Simulated scan of single mutants.
Amino acid sequence: MRKSERLVAATAATCLALAGVGIVGAQEAAAAGSGPCDIYAAGGTPCVAAHSTTRALYSAYHGSLYQVRRGSDGHTANIGVLSTGGPANAAAQDSFCANTSCVITVIYDQSGRGNNLTQAPGGGAAGGPDNLANATAAPTTVQGHKAYGVFVAPGTGYRNDHTSGIATGDGAEGEYAIFDGTHFNSGCCFDYGNAETSNNDTGNGHMEAIYFGNNKIWGSGSGNGPWIMADLENGLFSGVNQHVNTNDPSVSHRYLTAVVKGGPNKWAIRGGNAQSGGVSTFYSGKRPNVSGYNPMHKEGAIILGIGGDNSKASAGTFYEGVMTAGYPSDSTENSVQANIVAAAYH
């Protein structure tokens, strides 16, 4: 190769390298501006339900996050975001609820499928309708702005029995939620996820929801709890056995990332600190070795703060959560965790 040719080749290589840097930088910038549901979609497991009272879960979302009703006159107001893809407009709630009380009446589904959560009706375990959450009982800060979570006192519950796109039967799905890891009890059952459409216990394997608390009746992890477990109906499972899985640790981070995902004869529990670090796998393997859980019989309702049959003795605080179509990869969930940490809950 002549000297002039070598110069041309070197120049071209330099330009390609710089272009590559530009492409990588653009990808990193796009990822930094993505919401959890953008990340799940990029991983091939899009959100089919996305609930949060604290922030948008899509970078392009600019609609309402939730609705409040004030006690003084029964009027309602929708609470949106400060900016597209941004945190909740808590100031709008504060203004609307000034000098009176407010409850959260609707938690809107940001996925566009209409899977909103509203006041849970009665069920086989307890009558209803359930209580609605005090709209100011769980103040927090996210993305540097004031926001409010969903404070579930015993008797409080939300549900949607007529959903779109939620996994049924043995279909694959993923779920994550951000909870207050210091607010829990041993009552049944502080859940978020897939449940029965009839509000009754219809048998083993008819649910797949994230559970958080220190109930030991059906199963437990190591220590005294609380634990992230899966409510699969007629059992809170921490692993393949119905009772103790010592690899499922007690976790009590002030802001806790909790993950449950399931597919044909496989499921997993993952968790971590929503303020720092990654998520760890506490269980990943076959379905429980008890009759009725393989295959699963999921029905596709969505619950928050209660069990599938409206058991409502539980307590906890919910900030955000999603349900996906398909079984998310660990790498996708790791990216979602990075987004959660970057949201700077405190």
Rank of each mutant, 00 (worst) to 15 (best):
Q67T: 15
S52L: 04
S314N: 09
S331R: 14
G128A: 02
D248Q: 14
I39H: 07
P328L: 10
Q143N: 13
Q93S: 05
A209D: 03
G43N: 05
P288L: 03
T182N: 03
G272F: 00
C188P: 01
S59W: 12
T76D: 09
G272W: 00
H206D: 08
G85K: 06
S220E: 14
T246R: 15
N265S: 14
G321R: 04
V290R: 11
G112W: 08
W227M: 10
G203E: 07
R55Q: 14
P226Y: 02
Y40P: 02
Y40C: 05
G223C: 03
G22V: 11
A10T: 14
G63H: 03
Q337Y: 13
D130T: 13
G316K: 07
S59D: 14
S72H: 00
T136C: 15
A209E: 01
S111E: 12
A32L: 08
P139Q: 04
Y283G: 03
A50C: 04
I107S: 08
P154E: 11
A268L: 01
V244W: 02
F184A: 01
R254L: 06
H243G: 13
V244G: 00
E173C: 05
H297C: 02
N194G: 08
V150D: 05
F237I: 06
S238H: 12
G321H: 01
S238D: 12
D109T: 00
S250I: 01
N115Q: 14
D130C: 10
N199L: 03
Q110G: 00
I178V: 15
R70Q: 13
F184N: 03
A135P: 05
C102A: 05
A9T: 09
A19I: 06
H51L: 11
